[in-house]
Design a protein around this nucleic acid. Sequence first.
DNA 1: ACTGTCTGAGTAAACGTTTACGCAAGGAGG
DNA 2: CCTCCTTGCGTAAACGTTTACTCAGACAGT
Lengths: 334, 334
Amino acid sequence: MNKKISIKKIAELSGVSVATVSRVINNNGRFSEETRKKVLKVIRENNYQTNNVAKSLRMHKSYTVGILVPDITNPFFSNTVQIIEKNLFEKGYSTIICNTARSRDKELEYVKILESKIVDGLIVISGFKTFDRKNLPDDLPVICIDRSPADSTIAFVGSDHYEGAVMATEFLLAETENLAIVKHDEQSSSGSERVRGFEETLFKEKVEKFGSLIVSNGSQNDQQKQIKKFLQDEMNGSKQPLGVFALSDTLAANILLVAHDLSIKVPKQLKIMGFDDSPIASYCSPQLTTIRQNEILLAKEASGKLIKLMNGENLARDEIVKKIPVQLIVRGTT
Amino acid sequence: MNKKISIKKIAELSGVSVATVSRVINNNGRFSEETRKKVLKVIRENNYQTNNVAKSLRMHKSYTVGILVPDITNPFFSNTVQIIEKNLFEKGYSTIICNTARSRDKELEYVKILESKIVDGLIVISGFKTFDRKNLPDDLPVICIDRSPADSTIAFVGSDHYEGAVMATEFLLAETENLAIVKHDEQSSSGSERVRGFEETLFKEKVEKFGSLIVSNGSQNDQQKQIKKFLQDEMNGSKQPLGVFALSDTLAANILLVAHDLSIKVPKQLKIMGFDDSPIASYCSPQLTTIRQNEILLAKEASGKLIKLMNGENLARDEIVKKIPVQLIVRGTT
DNA sequence: ACTGTCTGAGTAAACGTTTACGCAAGGAGG
DNA sequence: CCTCCTTGCGTAAACGTTTACTCAGACAGT
């Protein structure tokens, strides 16, 4: 923060009052063409820039929105955030990105800080189930993304994970009836939806038995060990190829690596389906078949809704919850 | 932004003046223990939060720093940014992350916005060569990262790309004298350093001939086509294995994929060295040998220096430019 | 010539803080 | 009892804007 030339100085230099300068700047109220030119000239010459802190204070509007993201290192999140940021920027808002590191405490702390910086709105990616209005000023516009909040008054946008899992499962099922699902340790709401899609599809298609592995969080090496054991058990003596639905691309990629290690032929003996279409999906060999989330649409919906709320409009009943369709990307592992 | 309870209200409710409330809040100036308790109680009961916009205005200090990043989707950047954000947060600063999308215009526009929001400092990742003080208030603390600015008065922190390339080249050279380098289209300062490290090492070791490919930006498929042609030419009739130094991990990963496609054995016939140790490096098969940048140290240096500057301290002469050592990670492709 | 409207522009309050300054009360020291 | 210091706290200015009021002068209509 530094000493800069203020509107007062500009007023002085152009021989008018601050009010007039303000009116010229915002093109608001009455002033003559002559003064306009004069003031603008002085502004240009002195490289004047509005002090938005003062403006925010006076106007009760900061043109800043906060965005809470659990881990900006995750490609899906960073992608989504990047697009949201771009959309909001085009509407004149800047974005404070806060990395909550999946910590409830940090999330709360950030909410406080953002609140005190008087953001005009908030986007929350993958907040905790417990995320609700209680800790927020009631009139602060909020949009949740990816993980739906317990508080159903908060608008929500997320991919249709259930439908994605159904598509994935149907696709695998067309190739083999010997299926397995591999999940992460911690379950998010999106994760559960994917599991539900898988299980319900099997139920519907009357496939009764399927393998299941929960990979506990750890180093890549750890995870591979767990997968190795599972794969060895699972592939043992089965005549049909195994089709595995991995709940994320990293999981899928690790499965693929282990398969190579065990000299299991992919996709002949083992078919792998990922989820997300993260960058690694394209750099595996063979490349991963996966379900792609539409980050562009997701971001568009989220930022559009937030803008709407910040403009004081209300969301229609059917706008509160929005499911974004996903897409099956068939590549080498199936 | 919304109507919230202000210090005035708190003063009223506790029967003291705003000045006293402020003094209690900031634990600054004189007040009795009794008033302290009383005021704090009212504050708690009414869930009062300081309005930091007003505070910033009055104090000329916003406890906010801006960070310009060319592409938050890039794992190296997002990692670095994430750590910087964490470091600054611990010191009480929040961070506005701005995605400049590698556009000079957007960069300038963001600088203006940040300036008008009166940030206390600025971190610029990979700005343009032309980035300099001219467009900035002279007393705004700035740190550049990764790509060194033309303006040598701006402090800079970056990996030792030159040394990394030397290590990479020496390592490849120990296995084969038949080398090639594969680079990206657009050259950054870090890219040039890597090239220089490669070439000077070859010169020093008296290796005179080496292959070279510039992959022009395009889809993954496009890039692979260019690589395929190059690899076919290069591998044709050579008895020695080919060692290629790819200037990034994505390049390396694509080379690996093409090699599989052409049934070239890695690392027997072809040895591949990447750069960055990005996530995909660990998900290739075999996993990429690569040079890892130390994002933690990088971020620590950058945020530390910025804090120092924001505290009004000066940087010692030898602190202006800081090179962070890199590390050779030997894995499956060599 | 009187009234009314319009135009251009200034005055001052307000946004929510922090803090320099001042002052009353109380106690200590002579 | 007078002086002086200390303590606790209030008053008011200041940070840089925006904007509701106000008002003088110009001009038009009667």
